[in-house]
Design a protein around this nucleic acid. Structure first.
Lengths: 158, 158
DNA sequence: GCAGAAAATGATATATTATAACATTTCAAC
DNA sequence: GTTGAAATGTTATAATATATCATTTTCTGC
């Protein structure tokens, strides 16, 4: 059984650094600016493998000493989601760092209701099932939201 | 091609009456009360094949002469969603009447971004793909959200 | 029928999530 | 260094949702 969720005690700094490196590349390729604020928000989102709300980000930025208003955070989030660096989890009103922003994908999200962690998977069976179901009824897909709540393997077995 | 969305000019009164009849049965079977307020909210939701926000319901109830507060609407919605009579569309923060409340299902929702209509499908391929993907990673499913935005056949071809 | 318990609704206040509108600052290109 | 575009700051408010306690309605057992 592959483990979608990161192991406890994994080297999280590596996740963060890798994510930032990828984000820099994506921004560069898009001629978009990875500004200080955007970098801060992105880094905060990557502090954990959980989804983070806009106001949690706001609070975190504020306690870092900045006085930041909601539009600032929402603008950064919009920028990051538009580039695919961050995904919005609709069922949580929260935001989650994508670890494969370079590939164009219809992602699926597993959300553990016990530990709060989120994991993204790009699963061809699911994407194909969605595309096929849409095709059958003449529906032209623009965007998909697939969010699955439950217990991750760690929480289910401990 | 099967048409998931109802035809223009269909007999919508029939949809409404059938939905109410089913709701009465579901409530009866659950020994739950289909009170006046719940019936009103449910009927309002079924006025169209679109998803309706809580505050749209509130406004509709108010213009019917009642002075209703948010908790009243949210309580009715909670009751109806708990029984599976209504589904919440996460990506719209809105509520949608289920036309098969009696079968326990993981529903998928097609949302037309042009006409606003929503259609529910219970698609085994999709459910199975979700279950299989979860199984592969040892994830115990509690709930799923599958929402697909795009153009319905009518809007795509006209 | 009636008392008491439980369920539902009413009422008030407030929390949470998000955006509109306009001012100011920063930055890159020239 | 000027300028125009992009980004951020600032203020206000919209939209969505819930907590809490009071009152009313309904159900149950007698």
């Amino acid at each position: 059984m592959s483990d979608l969720f990161p192991k406890k005690g994994h080297d999280h700094d590596r996740c963060v650094h890798s994510a930032i490196a990828q984000a820099e590349k994506v921004c560069d390729d898009a001629s978009a600016r990875f500004t200080d604020m955007r970098r801060k928000v992105f880094t905060l989102i990557w502090q954990s493998h959980k989804a983070v709300t806009a106001y949690e980000l706001l609070d975190a930025l504020t306690s870092e000493g900045q006085r930041v208003q909601p539009p600032t955070v929402y603008r950064a989030l919009e920028f990051l989601t538009d580039l695919g660096l961050v995904h919005r989890i609709e069922s949580l009103n929260a935001y989650f760092g994508c670890d494969r922003p370079d590939c164009d994908h219809l992602g699926q999200y597993f959300i553990c209701t016990e530990c709060g962690r989120v994991a993204e998977e790009v699963n061809e069976d699911m994407s194909n099932a969605v595309r096929k179901a849409a095709g059958n009824v003449g529906f032209a897909i623009q965007a998909t939201t697939v969010e699955i709540k439950g217990l991750c393997h760690d929480c289910a077995t401990h």
